[in-house]
Simulated assay, not measured.
Amino acid sequence: MFRLLYVLLLTLLVAFGQRCTLTPSGGDDGPQFLAAAASCDTVVIPVGEEFNIATRMNMTGLTNTHINLEGTIRFQPDISYWTGNAFFFDFQDSITFWLLGGENIVLSGSGTLDGAGQAWYDAFASNSSLLRPIILTVYQAKNALVEDIHMVNSPMWFNLVYESNNVTYSNINITAVSTSKNTIANTDGWDIYRSDTVVIRDSTILNGDDCVSFKPNTTNVLVSNLSCNGSHGVSVGSLGQYAGIFDIVENITATDISMSNAENGARIKAWAGSDVGSGIVKNITFANFEVSNVDNPIVIDQCYETSSSQCSEFPSNTFIEDVWFNDVFGTSSGATVASLECSPDDRCSNINVNDLNLKAGKGTAKYECQNIVLSGNSVDLFPDCTET
C-alpha cells in the first residue's frame, strides 16, 4: 500500500508545471531533448513521431520531471561515435547512451526506446571486445518511476540502475531479436548496481541474457510478476569478480516469475580463483517460479567462470547464507533440475528448498549438490547434500 501511494504521489508531483511538446528535427534530436528536460517540468515525445538520438544524453540532476514518451526514441547505430563517446563505467566496462538522474522523475507514456541493436549484434560477432551501449541508465536518482514503456533491441543491457534509491519499473515490455545469423548477447533486462530499494514488476522480457541481475551492493529489491523468455535467469551476481572489492547483495525477493526457454531459472553466481574479490549474499528469496524448458531451474554456482582446478585450490570468498527456493515447479530441458554447487569450508549456510515440483525434460530428474547442508522440506531430494 505504501508503495502504491508513493507512485501516485510521485506521478502527481511531476504532472503540473511547464509542458514542452517536441517535434523531430530531421537530424540529431538529442540536443533539443536535453534542453527541454533541463527547462520543462513535462517533456512530451508525441505519439507517431520518431526521434533520432545521435549524441549522448546526460539528464542527471533533474527535479520533478516527467518525460512523457508516447512516440519512439531511436538511438542512431553509429558504432564509431558511441564507442568513443558513450558514458563509460569501470564496472564490467559498460557504456550507456543515456543517463537519467535526479529526484522525483517519471518516464512513462506507452512509447518505445529503440536501441537499433542489429548493427551492434553483427559487429560484435566479429569483434568480441566491442563495447556496446546500454539503452537507459538510471543514475544517481532518488524517487524514480519508469512505467508503460516498450524497449527493443538494446545493443547491451537494457536497463542499469546505478547508485540510485527508490526506483520502480512497472509494465515494461522488453524485446531483443536478431534478424541475421548473428545472435544477441548480454542483453540483460535489468542490472542493479550500488542501489537500494528497487521494484521491478508486471513486465515481459524476451532477450538473450539475465532477465534481472542483482550486481554488487544491491539491497532491498522486489521483483514480481515477470514473464521471462530466452533468458539466463533471475540472477544474484555475478559477485566477487574484482580483487580487493567486497560485494554485498542483501534482502532480495523474486516472486511470481514465469521462466521459459532459458539457461537458468533462480540463480546465484560467484567467482572463485586466485585473483578475485569477496562478499556476502544474504536473505534471498525465490518464490513461485514456474519453469518451462529451462536448462537449470535452480542454481547456486560458486565456481562461476572458473576452472574446476582453480576453484578447488582457490574457493570462492563470497559467502552465501539465508537463501530460500520456495515453490519452484515445471519442467527442465534435460535431466538436471537443480544444481547447488558451493565452495568448501561452510561458504554456504542456511540454504532452504521447499515445495519443489520439478520434472526432467529428458530422463530422470537429477538434483545435484556439493559442499552444502540443506534446510527445508525437500532435503530428501538431494541425497549427497549432507557432505561438506
Rank of each mutant, 00 (worst) to 15 (best):
D114A: 06
L113Q: 02
I67D: 09
I79Y: 01
T60A: 10
D93I: 07
I79L: 14
Q92F: 05
V44F: 01
V43Y: 05
W98Y: 14
T96F: 08
E50S: 12
E103K: 11
V106Q: 04
G111H: 04
I53S: 01
G84K: 11
T72G: 01
T63Q: 11
D90F: 10
T63D: 08
T96D: 05
S110W: 08
S80R: 06
G115S: 00
M57L: 15
V106M: 05
E70L: 07
V44Q: 07
N52W: 06
L100Y: 03
L99K: 14
F88K: 09
E50C: 04
F87H: 12
P46L: 03
P77Q: 02
F75L: 08
T55K: 11
R56E: 13
G109Y: 04
I105D: 09
L113F: 13
D93R: 11
D78E: 08
D78Q: 04
E50A: 08
Q76L: 14
S94A: 12
Q92H: 05
D93P: 01
E49I: 00
E49P: 03
F88L: 13
E49R: 10
T65S: 13
E70H: 07
G48V: 01
G101S: 05
V106F: 10
M59C: 15
T60V: 14
S108F: 09
I73N: 04
S108C: 05
D78I: 03
G102L: 03
D114G: 00
A54V: 11
T60D: 13
R74H: 05
Y81R: 04
F75E: 07
F97S: 03
I45N: 02
R56D: 07
P46E: 12
I45L: 09
P77V: 05
I53Q: 08
G61W: 01
I79N: 06
I45W: 11
F88I: 09
G102C: 10
W82N: 06
N58T: 11
A86C: 07
Y81H: 08
T65Y: 13
E103W: 02
S108K: 03
G61F: 03
P46H: 10
Q76S: 14
G48P: 04
N58R: 08
E50Q: 11
T83W: 07
T63F: 06
G109S: 08
D114F: 06
L62V: 06
E49Y: 10
T112M: 10
R56F: 11
G48Y: 06
G61C: 03
L62T: 11
T55P: 13
E103V: 14
G101D: 07
I45R: 07
F51S: 00
V44I: 15
H66Y: 15
G71P: 06
I73A: 01
I105F: 09
F91G: 04
I95M: 15
N58L: 05
G115A: 00
H66W: 15
H66Q: 12
D78H: 02
P77H: 01
N68E: 13
N104R: 12
M57N: 13
P77W: 02
G111W: 11
S110I: 11
M59Q: 15
T96P: 01
L69E: 07
T60Y: 02
I53M: 14
